[in-house]
Write a protein that binds this DNA or RNA. Structure first.
Lengths: 210, 210
DNA sequence: TAGATTGTTAATCGATTAACAATC
DNA sequence: TAGATTGTTAATCGATTAACAATC
């Protein structure tokens, strides 16, 4: 999992540090971060060292400069255009999240659906017919997509995106696809997350029973 | 991450094996599973060994019996009741997923919101006022909850659930809470998943540039 | 100076993989 | 029997932690 956990922690650092910043904090020790996130201080320092974040023995780490470095690492400067495919309930929920994403340097620029009842070219984020997808991707130089289509059309959409050389896909369907050389796929499976939660709880209960 | 990856793979095995079963397959080799999921055959065999799934040198593993064991491990026999808090867009999207979850031994039994316009006691899955939450949890012996409330009320809801000794929470808010001894929290942060996807793609592009 | 924290090295831990004997 | 696959052991790999010298 080459550094996957490290990047996940990076995002958690970001969230925490922003909150501290809102509280008026200027500096913070690795130890405090560790406590807040339930990890070890060694790990915090190692992460920072690897990401090139330096502190001082005097007052620890300077929050603003950590955040600055994190933003650079995440590439927040250039806004990333992303399209959404499948304007069903989950899809529209994500569209309405929109604002939050923009804050992160991510902007959903268009959505696509097969249902004409959903088309809305003039919306803030236009909802366009599926058959205009390929043209749109080519004309607007799109590299990222979110897939929230039903199970039945997942494979087909995935294939289109792969031939169009989309570089990154956030996949909410349960169609599990291997990362190809061309396209990186990040699978979010809510059903699995629920099943895993239940498993963890049962596991804990079992352990405490003996 | 004690076995977190292993349980994630278990869910992937399940999905794959179901598909194979639909195709009429009866048996399967560790090698084929490995190829399909992009992992090593050793790992498949080790996972199966740990979960107590036995195969034979003749025809590999019997699909039906793997699935049987997986279902036992996941506790699919007893249906788990779960409530949903926050019937906004994401919340209602999950409510409508409902059917899929039931298939997995998970049933959303009620939803809660503060907005009276959303109340609907007679719906298939009733949407009830937030102030009836505590009573409902106690009367119906609820152990699991999904939180899809806005950021602003996340902390408050989380605290209520913790005092009510809810055992497992699937948290879609960006409020990051440590797992306490009492309550296991599984955080799903869509914003983070997007940011991570973009990071991975940029990383890949950077690597191929040198 | 005394005390506390960073940055880094070495030790530990756990998960994955390679290899192969046992088995069909 | 010859060939192929499982189950398991030992080796490898990588990530986390512990420890501590260097620094403020």
């Amino acid at each position: 999992m080459d550094g996957q956990d490290r990047i996940k922690r990076l995002l958690n650092y970001k969230n925490l540090l922003r909150q501290l910043q809102n509280l008026g904090f200027i500096k913070v020790f690795s130890d405090n971060i560790a406590d807040a996130l339930g990890i070890s201080a060694s790990l915090v320092r190692k992460d920072f060292a690897i990401f090139g974040i330096a502190g001082s023995q005097k007052g620890g780490y300077h929050i603003a400069s950590i955040l600055h470095t994190i933003h650079e690492i995440l590439g927040k400067n250039e806004i990333q255009k992303i399209i959404l495919i499948g304007a069903g309930r989950l899809g529209t929920a994500l569209l309405n999240y929109g604002k939050g994403f923009t804050d992160e340097g991510i902007k959903i620029v268009a959505a696509f659906d097969i249902d004409p009842a959903k088309f809305d070219e003039k919306a803030d984020v236009p909802i366009l017919p599926m058959n205009s997808l390929v043209d749109y991707v080519r004309e607007n130089d799109i590299s990222f997509a979110i897939i929230t289509v039903p199970e039945s059309s997942a494979r087909q959409v995935m294939d289109i995106l792969k031939t169009e050389k989309i570089q990154g896909i956030l996949n909410f369907t349960s169609l599990k696809v291997k990362n190809s050389d061309e396209t990186i796929i990040n699978n979010v499976n809510i059903e699995h997350e629920l099943a895993r939660l239940i498993y963890m709880v049962r596991q804990k209960n079992r352990e405490s029973h003996d």
